[in-house]
C-alpha cells in the first residue's frame, strides 16, 4: 500500500472531567477545516464525530490524545485514551444504550447516541478497547 501524502497533522490533548473546555478541540478542528476550504458537509461530519468523541473522553476517560490528519483524499482522526475501556462494545454501539451518570445527563449528554453517531457520520470506523486500560477510536471521512 502506498503511503498517503499528509497535508496537515496536529495532535491535541484532551483531559477527562475538563467540562469547562469540553468541545474546544472540536471547535478548533472545525475552524482549521473551514479555513482550508473543505466542503461544508465534510466539515460538519468531522466536527460532529470529533465532538462526540471529545465528550466521551471528558465524561469517561482520564486523558487522551487526538491525532488529526488531512490527506488529499480524507480526514483521519485517531483518539487514544487512558481510561476504563468499554465493557461491551456491541452494547455501546447500540443507540440508546448509555452508562452516563445523572451529572452527565444533566449536561445534555448520555442519550446513548455518541458512538453510533460517530459511526454514522464517518466513512471508516474502528474501535479497540481494553478494560481498565483505555480505548482507541479511529475514523476516516472522505473529502469527496
Amino acid at each position: 500500500m502506498m503511503e498517503q501524502e499528509i497535508l496537515y497533522n496536529k495532535i491535541f490533548g484532551i483531559s477527562g472531567k475538563d467540562f469547562a473546555n469540553a468541545g474546544s478541540v472540536s471547535v478548533k478542528i472545525k475552524k482549521i477545516l473551514k479555513e482550508i476550504g473543505i466542503k461544508p458537509e465534510v466539515v460538519y461530519r468531522v466536527s460532529i464525530c470529533c465532538y462526540e468523541a471529545e465528550m466521551n473522553v471528558i465524561m469517561y476517560a482520564r486523558i487522551a490524545k487526538l491525532n488529526f490528519t488531512i490527506t488529499p483524499n480524507e480526514v483521519i482522526i485517531i483518539i487514544e485514551d487512558e481510561g476504563p475501556g468499554i465493557e461491551n462494545i456491541e452494547l455501546a454501539m447500540k443507540e440508546g444504550f448509555s452508562t452516563a451518570t445523572q451529572e452527565m445527563r444533566e449536561m445534555g449528554f448520555g442519550a446513548g447516541l455518541g458512538l453510533p453517531n460517530i459511526k454514522n457520520n464517518s466513512d471508516e470506523f474502528k474501535i479497540e478497547t481494553e478494560l481498565l486500560k483505555g480505548t482507541k477510536l479511529f475514523f476516516k471521512i472522505y473529502l469527496n
Binding site: 471547535v27 465532538y51 449536561m107 445534555g108 449528554f109
Partner: peptide
C-alpha cells in the same frame, strides 16, 4: 430548557 456552557459549544459545531 438546558442552560449550560455545552449548549454554546454545540451551537458552534452546528452553526
Amino acid at each position: 430548557g438546558l442552560v449550560n456552557q455545552q449548549v454554546i459549544q454545540v451551537a458552534e459545531i452546528m452553526d
